[in-house]
Design a protein around this nucleic acid. Structure first.
Lengths: 205, 205
DNA sequence: CAAAATGGCTAATTCAAATTAGCCATATTT
DNA sequence: AAATATGGCTAATTTGAATTAGCCATTTTG
């Protein structure tokens, strides 16, 4: 990782802990191991660092979204995967998804940073909603749509069913971001949530 | 409202929009209609204004909690209320609760302020979780407990049922805080959520 | 009613943080 | 290998926001 990248990385860490306004250019520089003025050889000013983080994260998320779409489309062709979706398997998938979002550094830090900055600019509010509201609902909605078609789940309203799956996960994620020490408690609750979700919406043969 | 109160009020408004660090003492003073130095006749410094907001809000929430506990205890005695809890009535109650938290100025602004500041201090993280995670789950859990006893709802796991009711409401509330223009969309989704919740957990005679 | 407290003001003061200037060694290019 | 670009540094500079000093009119209180 070169200095320019290291700056983004350390800035993201600091922004996610204290928010943009409480982080000083000198703090970032110190972590990177250089002096504040040297930072200006890499970025025009503090705001440019923030903007570069947003751009970089957008790039990564788009990349990820593209990958998921490919998987999603493949998945659509193979309804068999969903027919064999047992409660155990759903549990494992849900837990994996949760822990990935919770522990992946880029995801976690970026989510916390946006949480702090979401009211500051309209763009950031939209970004937040896209990443943590609309994209997950739409992607998971698609998967659940397949599962309904495959007869593994049943409902009149896939949109609300997806909300019933995702909102508790989102909720528990925000608890862990705020109070990491509650992670074990939330993991237990996560399991209970998924089991009950499966019983409520599952075919229950 | 005297000057001292007006300062808290305007400070809360500003903090909820921009966060503590982006609000200048001069901004608060201007809104109140005085000059910045005059502010120091009322509060020791900027931090003291923030602290006073937290104290005042704690006072109000405790007051509210006390009132709810009284209602809750009364309600416990009168299981009849719950037996006659129709889908329509549940819808109306849920909507009222949602709109109250969304539109009540103190609630909305304080929630947004805590959202921004939650990672800044452990106390604030705990305050946030108390107000928007543990208290609602415990209060609503109590009510749902009565409803299960009364036979209006059925479940093996009241805690998760409560999560299934509340997490989507919390989720939609955060969307509206961030993008108020999505309120109509969220209200529709709220209704659909409650209706489906009732069908999933209701006795369904 | 006199004295003390209150709450406003303008004019400093202080201080910290962002940014710029300008120097220098090293690496890269031609 | 000379010329140029890169990326580091220290020492200013600038700016802007928080806070203090000290004055004054009004209100409250003994």
């Amino acid at each position: 990782m070169n200095t320019k990248e290291k700056i983004l990385d350390e800035a993201l860490t600091l922004f996610s802990e204290k928010g943009y306004a409480n982080v000083f250019v000198g703090d970032i520089a110190e972590r990177v191991g250089i002096k504040a003025p040297s930072l200006y050889k890499h970025y025009k000013n503090k705001q440019a660092i923030f903007d570069a983080i947003i751009d970089e994260m957008n790039r990564r998320f788009e990349e990820q979204a593209k990958a998921m779409q490919i998987n999603g489309n493949d998945a659509a062709k193979d309804a068999g995967i969903y027919k064999s979706m047992s409660e155990d398997r759903l549990l494992k998938l849900g837990r994996e998804f949760f822990l990935y979002y919770l522990h992946d550094d880029y995801n976690r830090k970026f989510r916390k940073m946006l949480t702090i900055e979401q009211f500051h600019e309209k763009d950031l509010a939209e970004e937040y909603s896209k990443l943590y509201v609309d994209d997950p609902l739409s992607y998971q909605g698609m998967l659940f749509g397949f599962m309904v078609t495959a007869g593994v789940l049943k409902t009149d309203n896939v949109q609300v069913m997806t909300l019933h799956f995702y909102a508790p996960i989102y909720f528990m994620l925000t608890v862990c971001d705020r109070q990491p020490e509650r992670e074990p408690e939330m993991l237990k609750l996560l399991d209970a949530h998924i089991i009950q979700f499966d019983r409520l919406y599952g075919r229950n043969e």
